[in-house]
Amino acid sequence: MEHTTDALFGGYISVLVAIVMGFILIVTALLATRLLAPFSRERNKGATYECGMLPIRRASTSIGMRFYLYAILFIIFDVEALFVFPWVLTLGAGAYAAYWTMFAFIAILGAGLAYAWKKGALQWR
């Protein structure tokens, strides 16, 4: 396949069409329910759980610190996975330098993971 701009980016026209169609699908469904579903003026229907018991406080509480830790770790490792993508595509028999460079890169990240593990960042508590 020729790697012209057309071949590389032309396919993304269908991605655009799919995005628009996805939005249209949901909008249609919401319109259908607007037309078909009943609507009541009951005041209490907007309460949390709508079970009759009024909620005591708003739900916005503090978020556990551990979620941030995992999120930071995720960013590090996901960006790294992105670096591996082009390497994967160009790797062929005899590309020793490329292989050992990536080996060192992943080893350093492995050391990072080991450090996070030892520090207890991977322990859910």
């Binding site: 799919a18 995005i19 169609m21 996805g22 939005f23 699908l25 949901i26 469904a29 919401l30 259908a32 329910t33 607007r34 078909l36 579903a37 009943p38 609507f39 009541s40 229907k45 907007g46 309460a47 949390t48 709508e50 909620p55 708003r58 739900a59």
Partner: peptide, 28 residues
Amino acid sequence: VGKEDLRPTGADPWVFELSIYFIFVPVF
């Protein structure tokens, strides 16, 4: 389809409305 479409009064209207798009469209 025939069920009433509810939104809690305490909900953040924009984020609440947009969230279903963000769940369905990426998968689609």
